[in-house]
Amino acid sequence: MTSCHIAEEHIQKVAIFGGTHGNELTGVFLVKHWLENGAEIQRTGLEVKPFITNPRAVKKCTRYIDCDLNRIFDLENLGKKMSEDLPYEVRRAQEINHLFGPKDSEDSYDIIFDLHNTTSNMGCTLILEDSRNNFLIQMFHYIKTSLAPLPCYVYLIEHPSLKYATTRSIAKYPVGIEVGPQPQGVLRADILDQMRKMIKHALDFIHHFNEGKEFPPCAIEVYKIIEKVDYPRDENGEIAAIIHPNLQDQDWKPLHPGDPMFLTLDGKTIPLGGDCTVYPVFVNEAAYYEKKEAFAKTTKLTLNAKSIRCCLH
């Protein structure tokens, strides 16, 4: 018999989150649709729960009410004593943790798909938090293969000092899905179709896995975050240069030392320094102006996964 890495157990509980950011409308629209008619997301033997994560922000069509829901799922915020004085999103995070967690427990949901849009030209993107997770690498390989020839990129946010504390991190297997470009507060049919297909293929993978299909060893190309880059700023902290036209919409493309990065209003080009080629992502993302992030630098690498098969009882 072929030796293989056996994944822990079959997958039982899956959640699909929309509206973690209330103005990213593809996930909101799909989740609302699936709450009314969820036939397309159901798979035999699998509990799939669509869920609106930040209903107040969705109602106002804004990213958040008090603070970013997708950055506060750490033990400090989840452990705060519940009171009306807490920011709305912290209270909501505790409610979500109660419903789908608790985080880092045996009772937490197996998989959470968190649906997002970006204003950046990132196409279909899967966000991975753990480079050693054979199950998710296999799932992402399946999704990428199923979507081809449509490109699907994998963004690895594993980093020693950049801690995200994402909404989906309460699950055993957290999956971020990011599709763009799409303006905030807008629905685009092409973007919706791409996100819908990503979810379909992900659920198909889980179904095949649960039925005992063995997935042979595989490898995927990923883009691992190195650092986030702020806009150049003046002495008052105001933005002093904008994304250069040569960099705009060039997510995932190589940016070499000396290539144009920013452009000042008086026409001066600010190039990339250093001696390493990087791959920019979230270029000129609207939501990241407040976070002082013009783009993120990534490096390209390959992740390998062992063969996996479900432990059938």
Rank of each mutant, 00 (worst) to 15 (best):
T2H: 12
T2K: 14
S3P: 15
C4E: 15
C4R: 14
H5I: 11
I6W: 13
A7I: 12
E8P: 15
E9P: 14
I11E: 03
K13A: 02
V14H: 05
V14T: 00
A15H: 00
A15V: 00
I16R: 03
F17M: 09
F17I: 07
G18N: 05
G19P: 00
G19Y: 02
H21M: 06
H21L: 01
H21R: 09
G22S: 09
E24C: 10
L25P: 15
L25D: 15
T26V: 02
G27W: 05
L30V: 03
V31W: 03
K32D: 09
K32E: 10
K32S: 10
W34P: 05
W34F: 09
L35E: 11
E36V: 07
N37R: 07
N37Y: 07
G38C: 11
A39M: 12
A39T: 12
A39G: 12
Q42F: 11
R43V: 00
R43E: 02
R43W: 04
R43T: 02
R43Q: 01
V48L: 04
K49N: 09
K49Q: 12
P50I: 00
P50L: 02
P50W: 04
P50E: 05
F51C: 10
I52Y: 00
T53L: 05
T53D: 02
N54L: 00
P55F: 08
P55E: 14
A57W: 04
K60S: 13
C61E: 09
T62Y: 10
R63Q: 11
R63C: 07
Y64Q: 13
Y64K: 09
I65F: 08
I65S: 07
D66G: 08
C67D: 10
C67A: 13
D68E: 07
D68G: 07
L69D: 07
L69P: 07
N70I: 03
N70T: 08
N70Q: 09
R71S: 14
I72H: 11
I72R: 10
D74K: 11
L75I: 13
E76F: 11
E76C: 12
L78F: 11
G79Y: 14
G79R: 13
K80W: 12
M82V: 13
M82E: 14
D85N: 13
L86A: 13
P87Q: 12
P87L: 10
P87T: 09
P87G: 11
V90A: 11
V90P: 07
R92E: 07
A93R: 10
A93H: 09
A93P: 06
Q94C: 12
Q94S: 12
Q94H: 13
E95A: 11
E95K: 13
E95N: 09
E95W: 09
E95C: 10
I96V: 11
I96Y: 06
I96A: 06
N97H: 14
H98F: 12
H98Y: 13
H98R: 14
L99A: 12
L99H: 11
F100V: 06
G101L: 05
G101D: 06
G101F: 06
G101E: 06
G101W: 04
P102M: 10
P102D: 08
P102L: 10
E106T: 13
S108E: 10
S108P: 12
Y109I: 07
D110S: 00
D110A: 00
I111N: 06
I112P: 05
I112S: 05
F113W: 01
F113Y: 03
F113R: 02
F113S: 02
D114M: 00
D114R: 03
L115F: 04
L115H: 03
L115I: 07
H116T: 01
H116Q: 08
N117A: 02
T118A: 09
T118H: 01
S120R: 04
S120T: 07
S120G: 00
T125L: 01
T125Q: 04
L126Q: 04
L126G: 03
I127K: 09
I127S: 01
L128Q: 03
L128V: 00
E129I: 01
E129F: 02
E129K: 03
D130H: 01
S131T: 08
S131F: 06
R132N: 14
F135N: 04
F135K: 00
F135G: 01
F135R: 05
I137A: 02
I137W: 04
I137P: 04
I137T: 00
Q138D: 00
F140P: 05
F140T: 01
H141I: 06
H141Y: 08
H141G: 00
Y142V: 03
I143L: 02
I143A: 01
K144L: 09
T145C: 13
T145F: 06
S146K: 15
A148N: 10
P149D: 06
P149C: 00
L150P: 04
C152I: 15
Y153A: 08
Y153D: 02
V154K: 05
Y155P: 03
L156Q: 05
E158I: 03
P160I: 07
P160Y: 09
P160M: 08
P160R: 11
P160G: 11
L162I: 13
K163C: 10
K163H: 12
K163A: 12
A165T: 13
A165M: 10
T166G: 13
T167W: 09
T167S: 13
T167V: 11
R168V: 08
A171G: 09
K172C: 01
Y173I: 13
Y173C: 10
P174V: 14
V175F: 00
I177C: 01
V179D: 03
Q182S: 15
Q182C: 15
Q182T: 13
P183Q: 06
G185C: 06
G185L: 00
V186G: 03
V186S: 11
L187V: 14
L187R: 04
I191W: 05
D193N: 12
D193T: 10
Q194C: 11
Q194S: 10
Q194V: 08
M195D: 03
K197L: 13
M198L: 10
I199A: 03
H201K: 01
H201R: 00
H201L: 09
A202I: 01
L203E: 03
L203Q: 02
F205A: 06
I206T: 07
H207F: 10
F209C: 02
F209W: 10
N210D: 00
N210C: 05
N210R: 09
E211Y: 07
G212T: 02
E214P: 08
F215M: 04
F215T: 04
F215P: 05
F215D: 00
P216W: 02
P217A: 11
C218N: 02
C218A: 07
A219L: 06
A219M: 10
E221G: 01
V222F: 03
K224M: 00
K224I: 03
I225W: 15
I225F: 15
I226V: 11
I226T: 11
I226K: 08
I226A: 08
I226R: 07
V229I: 08
V229C: 07
D230W: 08
D230T: 10
P232K: 04
R233A: 07
R233H: 07
D234Q: 08
D234L: 08
E238F: 06
A240W: 02
A240N: 15
H244Q: 06
P245T: 00
P245A: 01
L247M: 09
L247H: 04
Q248D: 02
D249P: 04
Q250V: 03
Q250C: 09
D251L: 05
W252R: 07
W252V: 03
W252Q: 02
W252Y: 14
P254H: 01
L255T: 01
H256S: 11
P257S: 00
P257D: 02
D259P: 03
F262R: 05
F262W: 07
F262I: 04
L263K: 07
D266H: 07
G267C: 05
G267L: 03
G267Y: 03
K268R: 12
K268F: 06
T269D: 10
T269P: 08
I270G: 03
I270R: 00
L272K: 01
L272G: 02
G274N: 03
G274R: 02
G274Q: 00
G274H: 01
D275Q: 09
T277I: 11
V278A: 02
Y279H: 08
Y279N: 00
P280C: 02
P280N: 05
V281S: 07
F282R: 15
N284T: 04
N284S: 10
E285K: 03
A287I: 09
A287E: 12
Y288L: 15
E290Q: 12
K292W: 07
A294E: 05
A294G: 06
A296G: 08
A296S: 11
K297D: 03
T298W: 00
T298D: 05
T299Y: 10
T299S: 10
K300Q: 07
K300A: 04
T302H: 08
A305W: 06
S307W: 02
S307T: 09
S307L: 04
I308N: 04
I308F: 02
I308C: 00
I308D: 04
R309C: 10
R309W: 06
C310H: 12
C310W: 08
C311E: 15
C311R: 12
L312R: 14
L312P: 15
